[in-house]
Design a protein around this nucleic acid. Sequence first.
DNA 1: CGGCTTTGACCAGCGC
DNA 2: GCGCTGGTCAAAGCCG
Length: 348
Amino acid sequence: MEKKNENNPMSNMRFSDEIPSAFGGGGGGSIFDMAGTSCEGSGGDKWGSLGFMDLLGIHQDFVAPSLFDSFQPSILPPSSPPLSVFHHHDDDILHELHTDSKQQHLNHQAGLLSPASTVPESSEVLNNPATPNSSSISSSSNELAANDEQTKAGDDEDKTKKPLKPKKKNPKRQREPRFAFMTKSDIDHLDDGYRWRKYGQKAVKNSPYPRSYYRCTTAGCGVKKRVERSSDDPTIVVTTYEGQHTHPCPIMPRGAIGIAPDSSAFGAPSFIIPQPMYLNHQQQQQQQLQPYIYNSTPSLNITSFPGFLQEKPRFSNPNPSALSHRDHGLLQDIVPTPMRTEAKEEDQ
DNA sequence: CGGCTTTGACCAGCGC
DNA sequence: GCGCTGGTCAAAGCCG
C-alpha cells in the first residue's frame, strides 16, 4: 500500500462541503496558504507527518478566527470572500458534486446570487438527521431479508462468486452530514488525529486518481471519510468526512481552543459557515490574476466551495466571538470558487 | 499476531 | 429495464 503520506510537509488545504468528484468543473475557489506545521498526531506514524489536527490548530491560529468571524454574515464586509468550510447533511451531495459547476455557472450568470439561490441543495438534501447509529453499520429486517435472498442467490452462484455478504439495504439510506475540504498536498490521507482504516478504493470517473474510503477505527464510531485527488490538479486532495465521531479525538491538537471534540463532527473543527459572498465579475478577475495566498506558510491552501452552506448549529463555532478579534485580514485571502468556475467557462 | 491495505465483487441508486 | 457509478464488503496479503 502506498504509505506515502510520510515525510510530507504540510500542504495546502481547502475547505468545502463537497467537491465534484472529478473536480472537473472546477471546484476550487479560495485558496490561501497557511502556516504548515508538522504533525503532532500519532496518526503520523502511519500516515505521515501531516497532522490535520495541526491544521485545525492552525485554523485557530490563522484561519479559524477569521473564518469564524467572517462566517457571520452580518459582520462580513461586502467584499468578504466566501467561506471555506462547508458540510452536507445528506446524500445529494453527490448530486451536487456533479452538478455543482453547472449550478455555479448558472449562479454566476445570474450575477451576485444570494446564498440561498446558490445552494438550493441545502434545502433539497434529504437532510436526514444524523442518526446515532452509523447508517452503514446498523442492520434491519430489510437487510435480513436481503440476506436471505442473497443467500439463495448465492446457492446458485457462489461456486464462482464470493459468498454474498449481508449488505445494508435500507430503503432510504441515511447519510451522515458531510464535511469536505480540499487540500493541496502530496499526502492523500491527512492525519486528523483520528485513526482510520481504509476499507475500499474505487476508480473515479473522469479521473485517473482513485478514491479511497476510510472508516474511523474506534469501536462504535461510524465516521467515514473519502479521499480523492483532483483530476484537474493532482496536487489537490479532496477529503470528505461523513458522520460524527462518538468519541473524543485520540490526539488533541495543540491549542485546540474552540474545537471541542464533541462539537467536532468530523474530526474537523466546528465552523460557522457563512453565507458565501460573491465577488462581482471584475473582482473575480482581479483575484484570479492575483491568487490569494496567505504566506504564513507556503504549504497550506484552503479552498472553499461557496455552493455549500451549513445550517446545523452543532457545527457552529463554540465561541466565535472569542475569535472575532483576530485577524480579519486573512479572510480576504480567500478566492471564491466562482472565479475558477468562471475561468473555466471562459476557457471553453 | 494483530492491524491495516489491497482488490475484486456485490449492491443500491439513478439516469436514460 | 438496463447500464453506469458510487459505496461497501471481506478474503487475502502485507507489515511492524
